[in-house]
Simulated scan of single mutants.
Amino acid sequence: MIRAAILGATGAVGQTFVRLLSRHPLFEVVSVVASERSAGKPYREAARWLQAETLDPIIGDLVVQDVHASPDCEVVFSGLDASVAGDVEADWARRGYAVVSNARNWRMDPTVPLLVPEINPDHVALIDRQDWGSDGFIVTNPNCSTIGLVMALRPLHDAFGVEAVHVVTMQALSGAGYPGVASLDALGNVVPHIGGEEDKMATETLKILGVLEDDGVRDADLVVSAQCNRVPVVDGHFEAVSVRLKTPTTPEQAAEAMRSWRSPLEDLTFTTDLPAPLVVTDDPAAPQPRTHVNAGDGMTATVGRVQACPAMASDGRGVKFVVLSHNTVRGAAGCAILNAQLLHAQGRVQERVEA
């Protein structure tokens, strides 16, 4: 087993880490870390448990530690808020920990991998360019809205080349954390602004789809324009995407490229079966958050309504589709856990060897 600590364990993302890791065959949660006001309390008392599954009693009995703790573990998962994550994660890396973060603070650092494991696993090599004065390092996963987009774009970029993307998001309330959006703002309404989200989608996509070179990642040569909206859906970020390709193609060819795309993780050995990262449906009324958000235990992105898009290109290079992904699983804690599994498969995080 790999012993794990969770930073920001009482928050919405931290609780998702707790839920997913409590039944994971590779990881054992040995430490939960939160703010000073929670430190010293049993986790079950410090956290207002919001997950649908019952809290694991072993983790519930763990005493919450503050951010200066030094637990005996091999990996640290960070669900910290961005307002504090930067300095705290850097401190843990300096102290020799492998930090796998969901926060935005280090995503665009040129030495820090911004990973979706099936999309750009080679970017893990950026770790070798980090220097924290220890064996520690930081790995990040992207914004929850970026993840669904890049999972759909990767096969198209590989097969045809992508020149430009316009994406309109309809993002779930759970993406705002707890207590999140006020009920009178959310119910029966659409909020057409999520601070910083559109910029993240534009910049993160270019880094993730970029090429690893000797001097770092060269951003992908494409343009992303995003419009982000909060809608009254509990879980699941839904995105309407229009793409201009470099090579003319039909909607059928574009759909087949996504269907037949092969994850590079298939060449590695993992301790668990990996769900399909991407599925394409022909159902004209799919995907929908209510029925498709938990595909692959929340780790599968679902694409539907693949059509020609003459507005993007009139010469057969335009395609449009919708994509749905689970924002707190695939888009947050689940992706970070898969990042840690990738680090283990590559030998960068080792299991504890008992004497």
Rank of each mutant, 00 (worst) to 15 (best):
V63H: 14
A103P: 00
V353P: 01
A332L: 02
A333W: 05
R244I: 09
H292K: 01
A9Q: 03
G136L: 03
R44P: 04
L278V: 14
L343Y: 12
E213G: 11
G296M: 04
D215Q: 15
G60V: 08
S38H: 11
A82M: 09
V76E: 02
V84L: 08
V162I: 05
P284H: 07
R44T: 08
H326N: 15
S183E: 13
L55M: 04
D221Q: 06
V211N: 11
H157S: 13
T249M: 10
T272C: 05
H292D: 02
L222S: 08
I59H: 04
R244Y: 08
C335E: 06
A52Q: 10
G79W: 00
L338R: 11
N102R: 14
C144W: 12
L7H: 07
T205I: 14
Q51K: 15
A164V: 07
D282H: 13
L62K: 03
A82Y: 09
E204R: 10
G316M: 12
T140M: 00
M1A: 04
A345C: 01
T249K: 04
V322Y: 08
E197V: 13
A176S: 15
A308N: 13
N141S: 13
M1F: 05
A333M: 03
M299C: 03
P275Y: 13
G210S: 13
L206Q: 13
E239N: 11
N339F: 09
I127Q: 04
A82H: 11
V76Q: 02
W49F: 05
R244M: 06
V303Y: 07
N120T: 05
G14T: 12
P287E: 00
D158F: 15
H24E: 09
Q346G: 07
A240L: 10
L80P: 01
A333S: 06
P110T: 09
R44I: 05
L338F: 09
G60N: 05
E36N: 15
A311I: 12
L21C: 01
A355W: 11
V63M: 14
G175C: 06
D81P: 05
S134W: 03
T269P: 05
P110G: 01
S242A: 14
N294C: 12
E252P: 06
A345T: 06
Q253L: 03
G161K: 12
S174P: 08
R3V: 00
